Simulated assay, not measured.
Amino acid sequence: MRIIPILLFLTLTLTGFAQTEQPMQQFDSNFAHTVYFWLKDPDNTQDRMAFEKSLKKFLDNSAYAKTNFIGVPPKANRDVVDGSFTYSLIVTFESAEAQQNYQDEAPHKLFIEESSHLWTKVIVYDSKGIN
């Protein structure tokens, strides 16, 4: 009988330590903007650092992006997983209009100016929530 309270205590303790100090941002299901980037030289550390720095600067200064996620492809062993890209970006917006404003804002244009020479291909998938 004493095992249940001990397990509960350990679970709560470990869960508390796993939390980050950054506040959780609410994912906005109204509009998701998913972008895949293929860098010209994906093994070039300097190119990757420059791309990441420019992308993070842009997202930090966007007035419209509600949440964002920057990722790299995981090692996957399933045929349905496309891991050919170098970076992925998922950004959420409160509306399609907010996403259009994001496209036109100065930080986004600066990101393209600073980084477009680093990539060979970009694919965008935009989705509206079905609520």
Rank of each mutant, 00 (worst) to 15 (best):
G129F: 03
E105S: 13
A98R: 01
D79Q: 03
F31P: 00
G16W: 15
I3R: 09
L12G: 07
A50D: 03
Q26D: 13
F58D: 07
P5I: 08
F69N: 12
F9C: 14
N131R: 13
D60P: 01
D41S: 08
E114T: 08
A65R: 02
L10C: 14
V72E: 11
Y102N: 00
V81C: 06
I70K: 02
I130E: 13
I3T: 07
V91Y: 01
E94Q: 15
A106D: 11
V122H: 04
G71M: 03
L55R: 03
N101E: 15
P42T: 12
T86P: 07
L39S: 00
T67Y: 01
S62I: 10
E105P: 04
H117D: 13
E105C: 11
L89V: 05
I6D: 09
T67R: 07
S95V: 08
K75C: 10
A63W: 01
V81L: 10
D126G: 05
R48T: 09
Q19W: 12
N101C: 06
I90Y: 00
I4E: 09
T15G: 14
T20A: 08
Q99K: 12
Y36V: 00
P73R: 05
G16A: 15
P42V: 10
F93Q: 03
L110H: 06
P5V: 11
Y125L: 10
Q100Y: 02
I4C: 01
Q100L: 14
I90S: 02
V80D: 11
I90G: 04
N68E: 05
F58P: 02
F31L: 14
P5M: 05
K57S: 09
G83M: 06
T13C: 14
R2M: 07
F51N: 01
Q26I: 10
T45Q: 11
K66W: 01
T13Q: 14
F37G: 00
T15W: 14
R78S: 10
